[in-house]
Amino acid sequence: MRLSRLARAGVAVVSLAVALTACGSRDEGSGSLVDKAKNDKKLTIGIKFDQPGLGLQTPGGAYEGFDVEVAKYIAKELGVDANNITWKQTPSSQREDMIANGQVDFIVATYSITDKRKQKVDFAGPYFIAHQDLLVRADDKSITGPDSLSGKKLCSVQGSTSAQKVKDKFPQVQLQNVKGYSECLTGLESGAIDALTTDDTILAGYAAQQPGKFKLVGKGFSDEKYGVGLKKGDTKGRDAINAAIQKMETDGSWKTAADKYFGPSGYTVPAPPAITEK
C-alpha cells in the first residue's frame, strides 16, 4: 500500500511527538558532587522560587533568601562562584526524585530531614531548626497556639501536611484548601481566614514582607530540621557540605544571613544547630 503524502506527514508529526515525549535524557551523574564542582566549576542547586525570606525570585530575576545564602556559601566552599550556579525550582513533592535523577546536585529548600526521606536521599546538616507555627493577623489576640484554633479557619496548601496535622489533633478546625501560600495571605489579611500554619521560617518571611500586618504566634509545636539534600551514598559530598555549614556558622555569616531574612518580622533567630547528619 502506498502511503499518501498526508499520511506520511501525519506519521512524521506523530513520531516527532513520540520522540519529544521519549527524549529528555537524564544524565546519571556518577561520582561525588565535590569532584563535579572541582572539575566543572559549576553546580546546579535546587531551591524554592516562591518563599519570601528563604528562596524567592525577585522582580529583577535574581534569587534571594536564607536558603539561597546557605547554598551560595556551600558553593563557594566547594570552589564554585555564585555566577556559575544554575538555580532550579524544586517543588516539595519532587525533591527526592530530582536528586536521584541527578537534575540537581543538591537541594537547599526548606527540606526537613525525615527518616522516610533518608531512605531515598542523604542529608547534610541540619543548617537550621524551624518549628511549625501559626501566622495570624497582628491584632488577633484570640489565637495563642494550636489548641485555641477550635472553630477557626486554617489555610492549608494541598500536598502540605502541616495543616492536616493540626486538623487531625483538633477536629474543630476548618480547613481552607488552596494551591499556594500567597492565596492564603489574601484571606488572612481580610479576615476570611484566621491562621496559616507551616514552618516559622516561611511564616517569618511572609510577615517580614508586609510589616505590621501579621505576627507569628511563637508557640512552635514541632521541630523541622532543615538539611541539605544530596544523592544517596555521596559521603564525600556530605562531609564537604557539613564542613561548609560548620564554617558558615562559626565565621558569623550564618547569623548575618538569618538576621537579614528572619529578623525584620520580630522572629528571634535561634543559635545555629549542631550538625547531626554524619
Binding site: 479557619k153 476548618q174 488552596v178 492565596e183 484571606g187 481580610s190 479576615g191 476570611a192
Partner: peptide, 22 residues
Amino acid sequence: IVGTLLGLSQTLGVTMGTNVLD
C-alpha cells in the same frame, strides 16, 4: 473560580450565607 474565592469571598467579604468553609 479562583476569583470567586480570593476576590468575592476573601476581599469583598461575601460569605454566601454560611460560615462553614466547605
